[in-house]
Design a protein around this nucleic acid. Sequence first.
DNA 1: TATGGTCCTTCCAGTAAGGGCAAGGTCAAG
DNA 2: CTTGACCTTGCCCTTACTGGAAGGACCATA
Lengths: 137, 137
Amino acid sequence: MNISKVAKLTGVSAKTIRYYESIELMPEPMRAENGYRDYSDKDVDILKFIQSARKMGFALKDVGNLLQLWQNKNRASRDVRELAERHIKEVENRIFELQNIRDTLKNLVECCHGDDRPDCPILNSFVKENNCGCEET
Amino acid sequence: MNISKVAKLTGVSAKTIRYYESIELMPEPMRAENGYRDYSDKDVDILKFIQSARKMGFALKDVGNLLQLWQNKNRASRDVRELAERHIKEVENRIFELQNIRDTLKNLVECCHGDDRPDCPILNSFVKENNCGCEET
DNA sequence: TATGGTCCTTCCAGTAAGGGCAAGGTCAAG
DNA sequence: CTTGACCTTGCCCTTACTGGAAGGACCATA
């Protein structure tokens, strides 16, 4: 199977597949006589695994660890779970930060006339200590 | 005012201040006789503005636009508001994605024994079509 | 057989937003 | 006079890729 077929099967671009190989996340595939990469079904499974883990927001470093665990039949599910739990915490922290940003910006946008006039509580908020310039004007 | 003082005043590291200057986000400050950067109060205000906008999650490119608007006394608050609204949408999309990830992972973690045994629905989910391996085992 | 178009290969460079480190100049204190 | 704490520039490292150039390979058609 050549690289573009694998790309279609997995949804990972050829460029990215080569990149994963270069950082040794993927094993090196066989080579056809013409030098083209020649992938097996197992390679495709590995790539699908990587892609799934990426979609769950795991960093490539974590994906590498998950891949190790996946291929180690003596793994402890505890290790996988701990990795996932750490990741969940990071995701939740990020959600929290983004929600704060969203709430603050929504307040500011509501206060902003949004017309031809220059006065703008959004810009004001970047200068002053308080977060929302609503009470003035 | 030398760079480390400005760094303390604004919470932006000296390194980052120089970086902002290099990408022309900040104007070049005066130089003292010894070649050291010498910042004015206005420079500090600009940096504080940048820092505030960064804390709201705006990309440096957007921060540049906001800075232009801030310094243009003939600006229309509409332009600022539109920029902010676009950003809010991006933030909300990101929140949504992260919530999906969190929910999926939480389900998987709940299903995982998390002990010495290798069987793990989290890993399974990365291989199979369904998102949660809960129903099996 | 020439030609064109589409694949494949490698390597180089760039992105965002800085961090780290090195080599060298400066300054103030003891 | 020396030590430590600043400052300067410059270059590489990070994450997770993407784009492009230059050069082979393969296939169909005129």
